[in-house]
């Protein structure tokens, strides 16, 4: 799975901005291992200068930086660049409010430091996969132990069929397609229920809980559901390395 990114996507240019040199080096290494090219910056100001004259496929931003902080940089990118690259916000701030603030401000994903290298790699690839996705529709897809048949709307796990309702299947499918990407509650409700208003808030929680139990989405099985409180959910792939 480690080389999945370059195999699928070819190489991409990733900008990394953090005031800790250890962190930028660590991230650059991960990016390069995935077959991409990394450019590192030690503060927001330098990053924005580079963004004016250079094109990147992804920006990994530290929130708390000298010069220009993460949120200000995202705002600047939205206002200045005609085609702003996706952003992964990376920070030591862990409060629920901070995470939803960052995602609502326009960040495409959010990683809490310190995070495992494999997780970071998966998240980077998830973002890059989306931005270059050809949107090809496969009737059958395999994700680790799980095989999804989109015609029959069934999921088999280790060859055994798991009984899911139509909504549960759609939800599972949505998560697998967007694995390692954080999906907002609104996005999920719009996609599955085509609404955001009339749905009781608990309905979504309970559907996700059922999918999680029925498919036994645990790290032992290579996946986990991660709840971003106040924002949404993410299906993470677990590298049992």
């Amino acid at each position: 799975m480690a080389l999945q990114g370059s195999e699928v996507l070819g190489f991409m240019r990733v900008a990394i901005a953090d005031d800790e040199i250890d962190v930028t080096q660590f991230l650059a290494k991960i990016v390069e291992e995935q077959g991409h090219v990394a450019a590192t910056f030690s503060d927001g100001q330098m990053l924005t200068q580079a963004l004016v004259r250079d094109t990147f496929d992804l920006v990994i931003l530290d929130w708390m930086m000298p010069g220009k902080d993460g949120l200000a940089t995202i705002k600047w990118m939205d206002e200045t660049l005609t085609e702003a690259p996706p952003v992964i916000m990376m920070t030591n701030r862990t409060a629920k409010q901070d995470i939803s603030d960052a995602l609502n401000a326009g960040a495409d994903d959010y990683i809490t430091k310190p995070e495992d290298r494999n997780v970071i790699a998966a998240r980077i690839n998830a973002i890059l996969r989306r931005t270059s996705s050809s949107g090809a529709f496969e009737t059958k897809a395999t994700y680790g132990k799980y095989e999804l048949d989109r015609i029959d709307q069934t999921v088999t796990m280790d060859g055994k069929t798991v009984s899911l309702t139509a909504k549960e299947f759609e939800l599972a499918d949505l998560f697998f397609r967007n694995r390692d990407r954080t999906l907002s509650r609104n996005y999920i409700m719009e996609t599955i229920w085509r609404t955001t208003v009339s749905l009781a808030t608990r309905t979504l929680d309970m559907h996700i809980s059922r999918v999680r139990s029925k498919l036994d989405l645990t790290p032992d099985n290579g996946f986990r559901i991660f709840t971003v409180f106040g924002y949404g959910y993410r299906l993470e792939t677990i590298d049992k390395g």
């Binding site: 929680d205 809980s209 999680r212 032992d220 986990r224 559901i225 991660f226 709840t227 409180f229």
Partner: peptide, 27 residues
């Protein structure tokens, strides 16, 4: 407070600690 599905929150936490449990071979 927010309206939280308790079992899912517990699962999230357990999943977070999975690497540590794995290391100690605890299920």
């Amino acid at each position: 407070g927010d309206d939280i599905l308790l079992a899912d929150l517990v699962r999230d936490v357990a999943d977070n600690l999975w690497p540590l449990a794995e290391e100690r071979q605890v299920k």
